[in-house]
Design a protein around this nucleic acid. Structure first.
Lengths: 209, 209
DNA sequence: AGTAGCTTGTGAAGGATTTCACAAGCACCC
DNA sequence: GGGTGCTTGTGAAATCCTTCACAAGCTACT
């Protein structure tokens, strides 16, 4: 398979998100133009994005909503479920653990870890917070493929090293620190400060030309 | 000013994040190569990113850490403080409101709003949750420039329309829905599902070539 | 069966971003 | 004061991504 650009994958995910809602509303088909408007892009972009993976539409008609959902789920690797561990049960970790959309999108939280004894033992959405010393053993036993880091910035690199050492190769980092990972490990960062700064930049340079 | 690509702005934000930590560690100067390693990019990219805005380094030496921090803050528009409102005081809204990094990076939460009477009146990090009917009036009075949406997906578009109607032109959306905004309004989305799906895609296609 | 009206899929063109490569500049040392 | 070793800043080249534009294909209708 040819290499696919990350922005393309992101857009596919967005299309899927919209299609799920569109399906619930009872629509049977959708055109690339409608999908584009919802995804903030152009119809040509939508068709090009999809064309990397095959041809899913009917000319003159558009795309079958349910079919396209199924195709996108398969493309994104969502036709299997993904076990996930959350490292850090503070505010953000706890909020994530209780986020229901997690489960409905194919991701199962199989473990939550924290160093703070006062948090260990609490239940979050059916999963009990465990002491962080069980982290490596549990990863070996439960074989999660993805780790979500919700630890303070100072602890993030150490947490990354631990989960990577235990065999994890995909990490979602909520700590406000940029992490260094070995080759072959995918790290994605969700960083409040960065998002706000991009907005601040946009506002500052509104009068750009 | 020439138009600057968003990925560039994102990287600048990342450099700033790293430099702040680097400064605390007591370093005086940094080379583009070190900055690149921390930011997961290349030294040429770092220099190119900075060159859009001027020349901040000394040949043979690198960049003065404090100087570069100051320059980046100015570039990103962080030399003034930005008042922010948070719409929705559920798990995520509450977690954000209590996130201290918010304030230390130049953003002040001046209002938090919710429709749920049981949440109205609670204090989060010094700010009292107010009923959503005050939203428009408060925006007019307090003149926040940025709104952070932490409402359920079904309510997100309506929330966006309200804050935009009240004069907000930059929005950070945590709801798992893609929103349609009028021209001139910048909307950034932080979407757990999308981030996880990008990871799932990466894992599924590990053996790409 | 033929025509009209849409919409997809896709090569080619265009534009944007990243990488390359090297001249220019600074500090330190002999 | 000239030489050495590094590092920046930046045009030019290369790569990557998006947009264009149109042939092909489907449905519905006459």
């Amino acid at each position: 398979m040819k290499h696919i650009a990350e922005p393309t994958v992101r857009r596919l995910s967005g299309y899927l998100r919209f299609l799920e809602a569109f399906d619930v509303e009872g629509h049977e088909t959708i055109s690339s133009g409608e999908l584009a408007r919802a995804g903030g892009t152009t119809s040509a972009q939508v068709r090009k994005d999809l064309s990397f993976f095959g041809s899913f539409g009917k000319r003159g008609l558009g795309y079958g909503v349910k079919d396209l959902i199924a195709s996108l789920r398969e493309i994104l690797g969502l036709d299997t479920r993904w076990p996930v561990v959350i490292v850090g049960a503070g505010k953000i970790g706890a909020a994530l653990a209780q986020y229901r959309g997690f489960g409905t999108h194919g991701f199962d939280v199989v473990g939550i870890y924290d160093t703070d004894p006062s948090r260990v033992g609490t239940r979050l959405n059916g999963v009990t917070v465990r002491a962080d010393r069980y982290l490596e053993g549990d990863i070996a036993a439960l074989a999660p493929r993805i780790a979500v880091l919700c630890v303070p910035g100072e602890a993030a690199q150490a947490a990354l090293d631990r989960v990577v050492g235990a065999g994890i190769r995909a990490v979602l980092n909520f700590a406000p620190t940029s992490l260094v990972a070995p080759e072959g490990v995918t790290v994605r960062a969700v960083n409040m400060a960065t998002e706000l700064e991009v907005l601040a930049y946009a506002l500052t340079n509104e009068s750009r030309d």
